[in-house]
């Protein structure tokens, strides 16, 4: 029985129309149908945060949303957010602090960091750490990531902390 449905949405500003199986997760749709492989799959049960994307401006876990649920929505991935220059300062701070090693967690962390700073660029270290509590990184031990976010936040808050 063909249960597939047609969905239309915008992904990184580009209109997309596809037929998808209902069981296809949003992150699998982005990765395997649209070949936007910057969003990663780490656990498929909502713990690791590697698949974090934005839907209608809100941070979501791409493994905990079905592609069909994104019908009519505005989806943004790391490719899009990096492409617009929105997180240029965060990318630069991550590179300077070496806040990434293997890079598997990095796209999800950048999007999460962007949301943390969007809510409060003057966020303190403890709040950053709580904000990152749903993003797993095995390589860095988080220290450099926290420093990078503080650095970018300080820049956005006008250099005053």
């Amino acid at each position: 029985m063909d249960t597939s449905l047609e969905i239309s949405l915008t992904v990184n500003g580009v209109p997309v129309r596809r037929r998808v199986e209902p069981r296809l997760s949003l992150v699998d749709f982005l990765r395997y149908e649209l070949e936007l492989t910057g969003s990663h799959v780490g656990c498929e049960h909502g713990v690791c945060g590697a698949c974090t994307v934005r839907v209608d401006g809100e941070l979501v876990r791409g493994c905990l949303m079905l592609a069909v649920q994104a019908d009519g929505c505005r989806v943004e991935t790391i490719e899009g957010v990096a492409g617009t220059g929105e997180i240029f300062d965060l990318q630069q701070a991550f590179a300077e602090e070496n806040a990434l090693q293997c890079g598997a967690c990095t796209p999800g962390l950048l999007l999460t960091a962007q949301e943390i700073l969007r809510r409060n660029p003057r966020v303190d270290e403890a709040e950053i750490r709580r904000g990152l509590s749903g993003n797993y990184c095995r390589c860095t031990g988080y220290h450099a990531i926290v420093q990078a976010i503080r650095k970018a936040g300080a820049g956005r808050a006008g250099g005053t902390r």
């Binding site: 809100e58 941070l59 979501v60 943390i116 993003n135």
Partner: peptide, 12 residues
């Protein structure tokens, strides 16, 4: 509320 999951699960 802050104890309920994480930022990216509470948005959804």
């Amino acid at each position: 509320m802050p104890h309920v999951g994480h930022l990216a699960t509470r948005t959804r």
